[in-house]
Design a protein around this nucleic acid. Structure first.
Length: 279
DNA sequence: CAAGTTACCTGACGGC
DNA sequence: TGCCGTCAGGTAACTT
């Protein structure tokens, strides 16, 4: 489900509603997510805690409290977070509800339960946070995510560039949709071995990744089936897809028929004319 | 170590 | 109508 833009949209949407609010109670479905929800520590640490900050790192949301703890939430493929009146009827797959001091509830709904929750305890910070994100690559907008950084990490690797940029240890937040879109806009075939991109191609690619991600954030993210923002509204970047899911249609640039192939088990789309396969 | 495969889960959709 | 296979925005644990 959500890639960086969708998580950022949720983060920005929730922040003004959560900052300064006290968590009064927690309720869970009892179902496990990717891993069990750490309910006992969450009960003792989050009840009566005030949310002081809501941030995003990679595809994770971080809720910081006045006790110094951080609740880390990942939405997996189908996770949603939304604010509801406490009397709003519950829906299937609501797995965690946080009751707030204004009688609103933050509800985490996740059909496929690929999401995850972690609680980073104040007394273990900041080491616990550093450890949690130890293997996570730089944010795509950061200066450290430069063409030379990417080229250096790709040196000698034969892995398809699409799989390479979807590796969260290389660059954070780029998932299947935006990997496809960025490679199309950069004119690079998704199967190209990561190690054979030139410096100019890395420059072009990171530029396109940043443009696409920012544009998608401005559009409120992409909604294919599951994604809704914190207010329950769909995003509309999907109207701007140039390549994702468009196999069989003509390329908007050159009219060639767009093609689909599977790379690393993920659907990949490309224009055989605008994205010629190199080496 | 790198790269590919599988598993985790539910629901929507198309073909028969 | 229903059954079956395929597919879905992610990640981590496997195997080769």
């Amino acid at each position: 489900m959500p890639e960086l833009p969708e998580v950022e949209v949720i983060c920005r949407g929730l922040r003004p509603h959560l900052q300064g609010r006290t968590i009064k109670a927690l309720r869970s479905s009892g179902k496990t997510l990717r891993r069990p929800i750490p309910l006992a520590p969450m009960q003792s640490r989050l009840c009566e805690a005030v949310v002081i900050n809501v941030e995003r790192r990679a595809k994770y949301l971080l809720f910081a409290t006045d006790r110094g703890d951080i609740l880390v939430i990942h939405l997996g493929m189908t996770g949603r977070l939304g604010l509801f009146d406490r009397n709003h009827p519950p829906t299937p797959h609501d797995h965690l509800c946080l009751l707030l001091d204004n009688n609103m509830e933050l509800r985490f709904n996740d059909t496929r339960r690929f999401g995850a929750m972690h609680l980073l305890m104040a007394e273990k910070l900041p080491d616990a946070e550093r450890e949690f994100f130890r293997a996570t690559g730089p944010e795509p907008f950061s200066d450290s995510c430069s063409p030379s950084y990417l080229q250096k990490r790709a040196k000698g690797r034969r892995l398809a560039v699409k799989s390479f940029i979807m590796d969260s240890g290389i660059i954070a937040g780029v998932g299947n949709i935006y990997a496809n879109e960025s490679l199309f806009c950069a004119g690079i075939h998704p199967s190209t071995p990561a190690g054979s991109l030139t410096r100019n191609q890395w420059q072009r690619l990171i530029t396109e990744i940043r443009l696409i991600l920012n544009w998608a954030i401005d559009c409120g993210g992409s909604t294919i089936r599951d994604f809704l923002n914190a207010s329950g509204r769909a995003g509309y970047f999907q109207a701007n897809f140039r390549i994702y899911g468009r196999n069989g249609h003509p390329c908007a640039t050159c009219s060639a028929q767009l093609e689909r192939l599977v790379i690393g088990g993920r659907a990949s789309f490309f224009c055989p004319h605008c994205q010629p396969l190199q080496k």
